[in-house]
Design a protein around this nucleic acid. Sequence first.
RNA 1: CGGGGCGUAGCGCAGUCUGGUAGCGCACCUGGUUCGGGACCAGGGGGUCGGAGGUUCGAAUCCUCUCGCCCCGACCA
Length: 597
Amino acid sequence: MHCWSKLFIPTLREAPSDAEVASHKLLLRAGYIRQLGAGIYSYLPLGQRSLNKIIAIVREEMDQIGQEFLLPALNPREVWEESGRWTGMGDNMFRLKDRKGAELCLAMTHEEVMTSIARNELRSYKQLPQIWYQIQTKFRDEPRPKSGLLRVRQFIMKDAYSFDIDAAGLDASYNKHDTAYRTIFTRCGLDFVAVEADSGAMGGSQSQEFMVYTEAGEDLIASSASGYAANLEKATSKLAPVEDLAPTSDTPELVHTPGFRTIDEVGAFLQTKPHHQLKTMAYIVEHPESDAKQLKVVGKTRAVVAFLRGDHQLNETKLSAIALGQLRPMTPEEIADTFHAPAGYLGPIGLEAAPHPRKPGVLVVLDAALEGRTNLIAGANKEEYHLRNVTPGRDFKPTVIADIRNINEGELDPIGGEPLRLGKAVEIGHIFKLGYKYAESMGATVLDKDGKATTPIMGSYGIGIERILTAAIESSAAKFAAESATEQYALPPAIAPFEVIVTITNVRETELLEAGEKLAKELDAAGIDVLLDDRDERAGVKFKDSELIGVPYRINIGKKLAQGQLELVDRLNQTTVDLPLDSITTHLISLLAASKQ
RNA sequence: CGGGGCGUAGCGCAGUCUGGUAGCGCACCUGGUUCGGGACCAGGGGGUCGGAGGUUCGAAUCCUCUCGCCCCGACCA
């Protein structure tokens, strides 16, 4: 049992001005953390208690499927050379030299170390599968640490690696992690979604990110009630059908549109809807040096033209995936070169499209939403003129047809047809099928049934420990902000530093003090993690402090004690009830049990 | 790395433009009153004004350099 009067809980009335996001301010104010440098934090007792609880849950679930290691954070250059990541990681890796001048790094992840153990020790398919995990501090020299514990240079990560004899084995290991992660995040009280992520270079490989919606997040995701979830860079949607315009002739027809350039202006002038228009966007792609093939074929830079429905937005990431390089908008001169017309009057007709993405010429991409549409309004590539009756396929042929638009909130997901929710999110976990990359480059093999050397196939699985805490605070703070316009939060009991706080409203009244101490002992004996606020402070101060540290339940010992009553404040549901002294422990036990079911 | 902002007491800030040797609120210490929503009165302690150099009789204030932190972007798990 812990008494506040003896603990180090340095709460602040005001947040340091450096803090921007809610969780950062609250973690500082509540005395969970203190900053030592950019992206470097000390975890104070309260923060440490909470993180320990998260780690305990992670460990419990991971022990169901794997075995725990603890690996060195300090790694010699050699292992990272072998995997090719000594250079591959670039400036993101912290590097140092020892007294002899040997080069070392602070590990960002542990594929190399794990694979080197596997290489040295695993001999036979009979030893597979293996799932090895650890909970360790990782170091990343982030270009821009920010948002308190959300993006830091030193953080605790649970990382796991699986070794299997074949793809079917990897599937099984991957699925075990998927299940374990869902259990872990649920037990931590998080409302999360699993997002299909980029499948990477290896064909058929799979990857999933576990995300929590929060405004403080850095990723944009879309999800729906049917279980569909995707990064905005990947997300697609089912569109409601739209009526095409009636043709005024069988061929495109010039319309004089003096001074009308934007979708809205042209739409208003021609009395049509934005979705009747074809929008033209012009970019230049700069191919990276590494894409030698592309450079050879089409040169270092290339014109890229995208056609979208008038009311849709381009997703540059999707387009850049097709264009194979970084995009930048065309300059007016480049536009003139390509279209022989000024911006505002660009269109598809008369534009010479490359016959194939890998062939020279202008890369013309038609958004899939325009496939099958007819009689669109488009720029005429002639100043002050647009065209009507433009029909893709008949009047012009793009290089490729592909999904290159951003989806919008409320559109229907492609699998279940449920409305999509769009928002910022923070990644708390990531599982993916690595394939042979590390085992192969580092020369790990085992003998298969036929006595033949075989490269094991690997998976890699991470969880950001601090991000679980941060995401929980952000979620709760957002809820409080919406409901009461206040900056506060309450943590799920499973990961709160204490499950309940017993607040003695006035320790100078002996009856209150004794009743509080007795109750706290009783709760403690019942296995509840209790904090007794026995400080000689005014009640208001103690109430505020109890809220600041995010403890989900508070028992007020005060005036009503004379009638044998106590108050139980449920901060998760924002309710207060009076309960008889002798029933409070059982009541709380059932509340806690319900919260952890 | 590009753009912007900020470094003055533990925290939040004023003072900088127009140089004259540092102030307010909270927190902290002592005494008293108060005691269910961040009390009140009285007294008190605490600051290399981020650092270095320069200008000046005199620099928190002006000039040069430098370090750090935050935000937007780029980048990145």
